[in-house]
Amino acid sequence: MNSHSSGGHRLLLKTGITALFLFLFQVGFASAAPLKIVTSVPDLADFARRVGGNSVEVLSLASGKENPHAVPLRPSYIAKIRSADLFIQMGLDMEHAYAPALLAEARNLRLQPGKEGFLDLGEDVQAIGVPVVFDRADGDVHSKGNPHYNLDPVQAQRMVRAIGVRLAALRPAEAVQFRANADLYVKEIEERLGSWKARLSGKSVRFISYHPDFAYFAQRFGVRQEGTIEPKPGIEPGPAHIEALVRNMQSRKVGLIVKESFYSDRVPLELARRTGAVVVSVPIFVGATPEARDYLSMMDALVSGFATQ
């Protein structure tokens, strides 16, 4: 009876030690493998790479070159989303054209909204342009407000910190490193923000753009938006709107037409010819133009465009 019992204990001990080894092996193995992150836009991919360093593998669904409303649904990304540990999006309906369909088809249960693997950075934004009355007669408006907050470096800092917090939660063993990386990037953005502001201060820039992409940028840097080429978001301009725009640009002395890189330059060039304004093509996402390699260089290019006038 006794020997049987001690044999049972030994067996239990052996099993316990084996289980412990297996557990430790698994933990060690799991922490060695990089966290797989999928982001909706390349700006977020840049943040995640900087915060995660060598501990992450990052893929962006959009390349930055496309109009965010027309990002192709690339089926090869489904397999990548399938095995991802974290999905990060801007939210505010920025990605409605492609992210929900790809996420639904990838069927990764870790990335469902509300789970730790789903990070919507738009949830904490004080959105500009939230429609009081949501009416499509106002064009392709976003019910949650303007989603282009990535062009405000202070928002970028907030996003970097939020990504740091989430990566730390997903992999506590590397939390210190993630937070340190995030702090470093926040500081770099802080330093550049000063020089960006200096380049635009005192210039009293008045501009028009194709689409209302610069609301947050204008608020941060004090430049004045005097209209958009689209009469309403998503609606191509007709002759009457172009005439009104020309009159407005002349009376308000608007010298700058900011064209988001993916739009056609036909109307901007016509407006420039008629008003003498300068057309600059600028990136509004990382990867949109060759010089926009990462967030800092993208913002450099954007600020340079605005400083042209």
Binding site: A127, P131, D138, P212, Q219
Partner: peptide, 28 residues
């Protein structure tokens, strides 16, 4: 949440997007 003052508003009423509110928390 606090509502930040808007500095990016178009001053031409014809070019303003009607029914839009500048700043403020999302009510969605």
């Amino acid at each position: 949440q606090t509502i930040e003052p808007a500095t990016a508003r178009s001053s031409d009423p014809q070019l303003q997007t009607s029914g839009w509110r500048q700043g403020g928390p999302s009510l969605a």
